[in-house]
Design a protein around this nucleic acid. Structure first.
Lengths: 232, 232
DNA sequence: CGGCCGGTTGATTCAAGAATCAGCCGGGGA
DNA sequence: TCCCCGGCTGATTCTTGAATCAACCGGCCG
């Protein structure tokens, strides 16, 4: 490839080739799983010689590690900016769900790899993967702590656990798509899932108790059936 | 190994070995992960000859498969009996959280393997693992559908998604312990987590809107079945 | 008593696939 | 023009660990 990006531009030292390989790795990992594929598969997918993979990555594990860092840091950054930014807890929770689902919309394969191969990487997984994962939980945990102090959160809710539950919901919601339980082609459905995850997390799934004031969460979208809950 | 387990007693001496191996497999998988361990590790852990593992199990994969079936079917059975049994949605949700956390209390290692190695087994995962996993979601999804018809569930909530979210919450809650984010030694904490998961899922995490009636979920311990909608 | 038989052993075999390495190629500087 | 250099190639080597297998117990039955 003639492309002489070279160091001249200083910026992204990352050669085109390297990125191609990374991209191929994501696709292959998503399709056959980390353990279920060989380096040769990645090379073929990238249209590159076997050895070149090793030119850019020390070994197979570093390849996965890089896929992880690439995708994860972006996610963390966005989540952080939401969690640490201005806004009510409700907005922030919605914002975080937004970030996650947007990531999925943009690159479902990458999200699949993150969820399937890394979030639950087997115990052996050295390095920081697990750590990084935990970091986000902590990050959002702090958000909840602040919200709690502000009285936005029920006082008997543990922030750390709340944080875990939020991401658990998001992850499993996404997993439903990843696994094919729900049809990801339907953008509509993505939107709805995102909304419901935030809603359920914030307000619960129960029909409103009789006599309780009906909150306005239904108004967010088509407020059509807004009066429904009222049971006897 | 000298230890002749009094063969005279007849009974299940044969399956005794098998069970020993299975137990060892769970422990080793939990410690080093399926891919991170060799059969030799399992054999050593079980105090058994390498070859014997292959006498009882066709191959490494069948070993994992068996661990899975053993643990999972028990779980599914319990969940089913709760989901299909009598009771309000609130009780059932609590019941399901109960089942999961009890399983963890009884055998944390096994739960760890189920969560880490199987629930999210990489794409390649043959057989029904993924299917079985999806089945529970469906099972509980039906429970939610019924609850929805009975007016217990908010009408704008999708049952399938609700189901995914419930298990997502439970799983991530458990993961917090598995990963060491929370201290599992503290039985107290297990109880609290369990309660909060159900509470959050049912009622949300938000502080009550001003003026709304305050339900009694704060005292999760003492028969909270309070005033949930009566079915039938 | 002897031979059969199922459970048991662990060294040996074998395949997969990770990692290496001896070069090739093409551009650019001398 | 020729040589150097670094990205690039892919056959070869090496490691790992799964799976096999021939032999070994020790009870039990004939």
């Amino acid at each position: 490839m003639g492309q002489q990006k070279t160091a001249a531009e200083g910026g992204t030292r990352e050669s085109e080739r390297r990125r191609t390989i990374l991209r191929a790795a994501i696709d292959v990992f998503a399709r056959k799983g980390y353990h279920g594929c060989r380096i040769a598969d990645v090379a073929r997918e990238a249209g590159v010689a076997y050895g070149l993979v090793y030119h850019y990555f020390k070994n197979k594990d570093e390849l996965l590690e890089t896929v992880f860092e690439t995708g994860w840091t972006g996610f963390v950054t966005r989540v952080r900016s939401v969690a640490d930014g201005e806004g009510t807890l409700v907005e922030k929770v919605r914002g975080i769900a937004d970030v996650a689902f947007e990531a999925y919309r943009v690159d479902p394969r990458a999200v699949k790899v993150l969820i399937l191969e890394i979030a639950r990487s087997p115990a052996g997984a050295r390095i920081n993967r697990q750590t990084a994962f935990v970091d986000v939980i902590r990050l959002s945990s702090e958000m909840f702590t602040r919200a709690k102090d502000a009285g936005e959160l029920r006082p008997d809710v543990d922030p750390l656990l709340a944080s875990a539950l939020l991401f658990g919901s998001i992850e499993m919601g996404l997993t439903a798509f990843v696994v094919g339980l729900a049809d990801a082609r339907d953008t509509q459905m993505l939107e709805q899932a995102k909304a419901q995850i935030a809603d359920s997390f914030l307000h619960g799934v129960l029909a409103d108790a009789p006599g309780a004031e009906v909150p306005a969460w239904k108004r967010e979208k088509s407020g059509t059936k807004s009066k429904a809950p009222k049971r006897t």
